[in-house]
Simulated scan of single mutants.
Amino acid sequence: MHNFDQRRDRFDLFDRMDSPAVNLCFPLDLPDYRPWCKEQGLPPFHVLLCAVLRAILGIENFRYRVFEGEVIAIDRLMPSFTVVNQNGDLNFALFDWSDDLREFVARSVRAREQACAMTALNNAYADLSARRCKDQVFITCIPWLDFTAIQHPTATLGAPDIPSLAWGRFKDAPNGRLQLPLSVQAHHGFVDGFHIHQLALRIGAELAGMMQPRA
C-alpha cells in the first residue's frame, strides 16, 4: 500500500466527484497469438482473458479497492466474464483462479458452457460476501464490433472501484501483429492513463511469455 499512500491526495480529489471513473478506449496492439493457440488446442478468448487478468494482478493500482470505507489491495482475482446464452441474452460466467494456463482455460471454458446453457441470470454473485466481491474484475467481449467507445454500467455511480474491461473484434495488423479495441474503466483515484498504458504493454508481454518455448 506504499504506492497508494503516495497518491492518497489524488484519491481524495477524484473520490469526491459524482463519478470518479476514468474510461479509455483505444486500439490494443498485440502479438498475433492465434496461430499458437491453434497449435496448442487453446481457444484464443480464454487465453487472452488469462493474459489480461495476469496483467491486472501485476499492476498494483488495478488491485486497489474500497471496502468498508477503507482502501485495500486485493491479492487474488476471481475471473468472470459475460456470455451470450441460447436466447441471445447476456449471462455471467464465474470461476476460480488457476495459475496454470491450461487449467485456467479449462475452468473458463466450463464456466462459459454452464452460463450459456442457463436461461435465468446466473446469480452465483449473490452468494459472495461483500469482501469477496472485491476480488472481481468485470470483463466483457464484443467480438462482432470494432467499437471506439463504451459506457460500462456501475451499480453506484460514485464507486467504480472494481475495474471494467471490454474488448472487441480482432483485426490483422502488419508484421505478425493483431489489433483489437480495448476499453478500460477504473477509479481515477487509483488509475491514471499511465497505468492503462502499462496494462496494455503488460498484456502483450504476458501473451509473448506464454508463447515462449518451455525448456
Score class of each variant (00 low, 15 high):
A155G: 09
R34N: 05
Q86Y: 10
D9V: 09
W167T: 01
I74P: 03
D99K: 14
N123S: 11
A111Q: 11
I56M: 09
R65L: 08
L28F: 06
G58W: 01
L199Y: 03
M1D: 14
T119D: 15
H152W: 05
S129P: 09
F26I: 05
P160N: 08
Q212C: 04
N87E: 13
I203F: 12
G88K: 04
R54E: 01
M78A: 11
F138M: 09
G69D: 08
T156F: 13
G209H: 06
P163L: 04
L30Q: 06
P213S: 10
A130N: 14
A166Y: 08
I59Q: 08
G158E: 09
Q6R: 14
I139Q: 12
F4S: 10
D192Y: 10
A208T: 14
G209E: 07
V47C: 10
V71T: 06
S108N: 10
T140M: 05
L145F: 13
P153V: 07
A120K: 15
H188F: 03
A200E: 04
P44T: 08
D5L: 13
L24N: 04
N61Q: 12
L101G: 00
H187N: 10
G176E: 00
A126V: 08
F62P: 02
K38I: 02
V109I: 11
N85K: 07
F62H: 01
D172I: 05
Q151K: 09
L90M: 14
V66I: 11
V47I: 12
I139C: 10
